[in-house]
C-alpha cells in the first residue's frame, strides 16, 4: 500500500473546496462554482448544466458553449469520470462519509451502474418538456458549491440525505448509480485515452483492488474476459487500485490503440463464464 496517487488526489479534492471558498476570502482569481466558473479569466462550464440551460431556455451564448466544450475535452483527455474521483465535492464527501460506516467497506451494489444513464435521459427529457432544469435544481454538487461560497446551508439537506441513505442502506448509491453528471462523464470516459492497464503476469489474484475499488464492476472484465485494461466508462480513475496492489500489476497511462477484447458495457450483469 502506497499513497502515490492517494496524496495528489486528496490534494486536488481539497484544492477544489479551497477554490470554491476563495471568493469568500476576498481572492478574485476564481468565481462561480462547478456549474460555471471563471478561473484566471477563462470561462469554464459544466457541460450538463450548459445542455440543460440551452435546451430549457433556447438561449445560446457562444462563450458559454465554448467553456462547456473546454471542460468536456479536458475530462475526455483525463479520463471522464476523473471528475468524480478527483474534483467533485460530493464524491469527496461521500468518500469521507464511508470512513465512518464500517458496513460500507465492501462496496455494495444496490442499483446497476447503468441506472445513471436513464436518470440522465430523464433529466434531459424533463428540461425539454417543462423547462425545469431538474438536475440544476436538485444537484448536490451545486448545493455544496453554494453552501461553501454563499453559506446557504438549508439545501445541505440534500447531501445530508445522500450521506444518510448511503450510510444506512445503500453504500455509494448516489455516485455509482444515480448521479446524471457521473453518467454523462461515463459516456465520454469510455472513449478517453487515459486508462488503467493490467499486467496479468504480475497478478496473484489477491483481490485487494476489487475491495478498494468504488466501482468494482469495472475490474471484472480483467479476469472474466481477459481484458488487459479497464475500458469501462464508470472507472473514476481514482487509482486506489494502483496504490493498493502489492505486485504493481496495475498501471495508468494514455493508450490510444483499441484493445481487441474491449468490454465496455459493465452496466448489465456479466453472465457466469464456465469455470
Amino acid at each position: 500500500m502506497t499513497s502515490r496517487w492517494w496524496l495528489p488526489r486528496r490534494a486536488v479534492q481539497t484544492g477544489t473546496i479551497l477554490l470554491l471558498a476563495s471568493p469568500v476570502a476576498g481572492f478574485t482569481f476564481f468565481s462561480g462554482n462547478l456549474a460555471s466558473a471563471e478561473l484566471a479569466g477563462v470561462r469554464l462550464s459544466d457541460p450538463l448544466a450548459c445542455l440543460q440551460a440551452v435546451i430549457g431556455s433556447g438561449v445560446l451564448i457562444p462563450s458559454f458553449l465554448f467553456g462547456a466544450l473546454l471542460v468536456t475535452s479536458g475530462y475526455f483527455v483525463f479520463g471522464g469520470r476523473s471528475f468524480c474521483g478527483w474534483v467533485c465535492p460530493v464524491g469527496f464527501l461521500t468518500e469521507l462519509g464511508e470512513k465512518f460506516s464500517s458496513k460500507v467497506r465492501r462496496g455494495g451494489r444496490f442499483l446497476p451502474l447503468a441506472t445513471g444513464r436513464y436518470i440522465l435521459a430523464a433529466v434531459l427529457v424533463t428540461v425539454a418538456a417543462t423547462g425545469v432544469p431538474l438536475f440544476e435544481v436538485l444537484s448536490p454538487i451545486g448545493i455544496m458549491g453554494r453552501a461553501i461560497a454563499f453559506a446557504s446551508l438549508v439545501p445541505l439537506l440534500v447531501p445530508a440525505a445522500i450521506l444518510l441513505v448511503e450510510g444506512v442502506a445503500a453504500p455509494r448509491v448516489w455516485c455509482r448509480s444515480l448521479c446524471p453528471l457521473g453518467a454523462f462523464y461515463a459516456i465520454i470516459a469510455r472513449f478517453s485515452p487515459l486508462k488503467v492497464g493490467f499486467h496479468r503476469e504480475r497478478c496473484t489474484g489477491c483481490g485487494d483492488c476489487v475491495a478498494v475499488c468504488p466501482v468494482p464492476e469495472v475490474l471484472e472484465p480483467l479476469w472474466d474476459q481477459g481484458a488487459c485494461r479497464v475500458c469501462a466508462g464508470e472507472c473514476t480513475r481514482c487509482l486506489a487500485c494502483l496504490d493498493i496492489c502489492p505486485e504493481r500489476a496495475l498501471s495508468v497511462g494514455f493508450r490510444f490503440k483499441k484493445e481487441p477484447h474491449s468490454v465496455t458495457d459493465v452496466g448489465r450483469p456479466i453472465e457466469k463464464s464456465a469455470p
Partner: peptide
C-alpha cells in the same frame, strides 16, 4: 420561465455585485 432554465445557479452575479444586493434563493 426561461430564466429558471437558463440560470445555471453559479452565483457569479452575486459575487460580482459590489453592493452585495444579489442573494441566492435557497429553496
Amino acid at each position: 420561465r426561461r430564466f429558471l432554465a437558463a440560470c445555471v445557479r453559479c452565483g457569479k452575479c452575486a459575487q460580482a455585485c459590489p453592493y452585495h444586493a444579489i442573494r441566492l434563493q435557497d429553496r
